[in-house]
Design a protein around this nucleic acid. Structure first.
Lengths: 187, 187
DNA sequence: TTTAAGATAGACAAGTCTGTCTATCTATTT
DNA sequence: AAATAGATAGACAGACTTGTCTATCTTAAA
């Protein structure tokens, strides 16, 4: 028998993998139980509903996501290169997932309009990412046409726009275009 | 009794409204039948499966979408203002749908990864939109940092990035920011 | 006027969904 | 050693899913 903590981890890993690759609505509790190899009651002991499992997934993903991002960019010193590293991080994630798209955006498109908790968690992740961009842009010298805040907004939207596009084009072309545009905007 | 053509129109209207507001996976054939007020066999007479109904919805939406866009921007003469009109078109659509997001992106996030037909239809719509931007940018005089193609890409990603963000923020702030950035980039 | 297409209502199959419940077993804590 | 927490398997309810089928009715064309 596995321990309580191990079970919770296994459930979250399995559910996260399935939610991302198949979609939240297309993934049934039964499949999570089967693939996690745990008992039905164990899942409902740790999570009171499927929605609760979704929220836990989003929270856990937020942590993991930034952890992995920092592993990639913390070693970079040059501020401009650090920002370019954000694009490379997304490029890497896309290739690894075979262009499954951003997991947060996917959930955003799937949950009903009144699931404010889901939208809050998604917004929290995205605004944290935007704030990181804003911080990094502070260290960049004056820009021709755009204010610092506008440059940060532009970089954020380049990344998000390229990510959704990659999700249906199933290739990296838009993100590499975004990256080279960013390099030019950063001067 | 309604005519065959009327029925098909009613089905598409009803399915489209429900697919967009509730999501494709969360909308059952039974609900479409009930709300359209038609017989079950009539639906399966016009569309051989739920997937087929989705494809017809995407094709019809593509037409309607560009029709509405052209109603808004064809009267504008100034090339820069025409491009700003694209942002205003999206702003209007978002407000009208209470920030339900882009219907194409929503489907892109919901369908299984092997539904290449859906991804093709979505890509067709988005690339047509991007090509329109590219045409409009041709008429804009030289830009400081970016090439014509890069400016078009940037505008496209600003709009798409702002749209997905609006879908979870449920407000227009990101799209208005994108619009004023676009105005600056256009000089 | 006969024929044929396509509308109608509704039963049905075979499966899925979420969440609850019982009953039993095991491991840890008191 | 007894008690408790939490694991297990699996039945179950009740609703929902897509797609097919029968049987009847209405309209339009031949």
């Amino acid at each position: 028998m596995k321990s309580s903590a191990e079970i919770k981890t296994t459930i979250l890993e399995t559910a996260g993998r399935l939610f991302y690759s198949q979609g939240y609505n297309s993934t049934g509790i039964n499949q999570v139980i089967d693939e996690a190899g745990i008992a039905r009651a164990s899942l409902y002991n740790h999570f009171k509903s499927k929605s609760d499992l979704l929220y836990a997934y989003l929270e856990e993903l937020d942590e993991k996501w930034f952890d992995q991002l920092h592993v990639q960019i913390d070693k970079i010193k040059d501020p401009k290169e650090k920002i370019i590293g954000l694009f490379e991080f997304r490029l890497k994630r896309q290739a690894n997932s075979q262009y499954a798209g951003c997991p947060f955006i996917k959930v955003s498109a799937e949950v009903p309009a009144d699931d404010s908790k889901a939208f809050e968690l998604i917004n929290k992740n995205k605004m944290k990412f935007k704030q990181l961009i804003e911080q990094l842009v502070q260290d960049i010298p004056a820009h021709a046409q755009l204010s610092t805040a506008e440059l940060a907004d532009t970089l954020y939207m380049l990344i998000e726009g390229a990510t959704v596009t990659a999700a249906f084009q199933k290739n990296k072309s838009m993100m590499t275009a975004a990256k080279s545009i960013a390099a030019k905007l950063l001067g």
